[in-house]
């Protein structure tokens, strides 16, 4: 299911819709969260004319003061946001949400064919830059998922999808191609397995492995969360002998 790939540790999620499904954007995201049992902690921002009131956006951060209940925020679509707010204001707001510890995830929906702004391409690129997970709904049967890990790793994978009104099934596109290769191989040469041409290692991850990998917090990520600094505080004794001259000066380094 798509929700396994979308509801992960990544905080800012951008959905680029090339199929004109903007009218169901909020429902789409809400369904993803519900499938992962996150349906209760959702805050949907006002849409349309209600967006005129800047205060309603700003107050969102102040509303949830209890750190135990981190919320998922579903932003209005980028087309609606651009209708009432300047791009700089939108970027600032997304950035603030990203830093806010009471917010577990931020979802933004963008349909490139509906962006009225003159610099729509740059704005969309800016949103992509801010996002940690970018889902691109390319066609009715294919999508791509770009994932940026906190450690700096980036993966860009394509999937085939099977969409009904209530279900969104995905299958890695590479695996599908490999499976097809395997079937033809088996037919032509029984007993010989279609191995990865790169070797005997299994490089690709299936959906469950991907979820497990995304859920795992690596030790160096844990330490980077804490705000402790690694400075060495040294208080010199009165008898310490300090030499102002460089002791290695004669080495001509």
């Amino acid at each position: 299911m798509l929700s396994n790939l979308m509801v992960t540790n990544q905080k800012v999620v951008l959905i680029i819709d090339q199929l004109n499904r903007e009218r169901i954007a909020a429902k789409f995201i809400d369904s993803l969260l519900k499938e992962q049992g996150q349906g209760e902690e959702v805050k949907v921002l006002p849409i349309g004319t209600q967006l005129k009131h800047v205060a309603s956006i700003e107050t969102l951060l102040g509303d949830n003061n209890n750190p135990k209940n981190a919320i998922n925020v579903i932003l209005p679509t980028l087309a609606d946001l651009l209708c009432y707010h300047k791009p700089a204001h939108i970027f600032q707001f997304i950035n603030r949400l990203r830093r806010c510890e009471h917010v577990s995830r931020v979802f933004l929906w963008a349909s490139p064919q509906l962006l009225l702004h003159a610099d729509a391409e740059y704005i969309l690129a800016g949103c992509e830059y801010l996002s940690e997970l970018v889902l691109r709904l390319e066609t009715d049967t294919t999508l791509s998922l770009l994932s940026r890990k906190p450690g700096g790793g980036v993966s860009n994978k394509r999937y085939t999808c099977e969409v009904s009104k209530t279900e969104f099934k995905v299958k890695p596109l590479v695996d599908a191609a490999a499976n097809a290769a395997t079937v033809t191989e088996v037919k032509s040469e029984e007993g010989v397995k279609a191995a990865d041409p790169g070797g005997t290692f299994k490089i690709e991850l299936d959906e469950d492995e991907m979820v497990a990998r995304n859920a795992l917090t690596l030790p160096y990520e844990r330490t980077s969360d804490t705000a402790t600094e690694g400075n060495i505080i040294y208080t010199p004794d009165a008898d310490d002998d300090f030499d102002d001259e460089d002791p290695d000066e004669d080495l001509l380094i």
Binding site: R23, F28, V163, T166, E167
Partner: peptide
């Protein structure tokens, strides 16, 4: 005409 708005697709 949009007949029904599903969670992931419209009819």
């Amino acid at each position: 005409r949009v007949l029904d708005e599903g969670s992931y697709a419209c009819e």
